[in-house]
Amino acid sequence: MGVSEVSGDLGQLWYGELRGQLRRTKVPLTGLTDRATLFCLEELARDVDMKMRFRVDRVVEQGGRIRHEVAGQPRLVTGLHDLGTDESFGNAMASVVRRIDFSSSRDVRIQRRTGPFHNASERVLVAWVIA
């Protein structure tokens, strides 16, 4: 398993590293990014015939309360609307990755590809699985 940090520009990571690895061996990608980065990644994933399978938009509401918008296979979504914060959030995502059935039929509505400039984008982090 490889872990990469992205700061501002996904381009060199994708073209210089990830795409080549995924062409050789396709493995699920998971990450926590802002929406702009995820938008680019969703577009780029077409290079290797990969697509969004699961996403949790972590929206910080006024007053600092965190709300999770979950989209993916129904059996995974159920029970995940009350994801915790901090460590428990990461643990829940790790559990999701382990439980995703990559062979089952998939909902195209997950492929939201919401443009990067949405007004709420700046403060939203998204945990996602692309495979």
């Binding site: 501002g8 520009d9 702009a36 938008f39 443009g115 400039f117 949405h118 007004n119």
Partner: peptide, 21 residues
């Protein structure tokens, strides 16, 4: 580069109104 996506998303001067595309 792809920096333009991150830059534009974060710059309130350029995008005061919500914009999805």
């Amino acid at each position: 580069a792809l920096e333009i996506f991150a830059t534009m998303a974060r710059n309130p001067q350029t995008n005061e109104a919500p914009l999805e595309g």
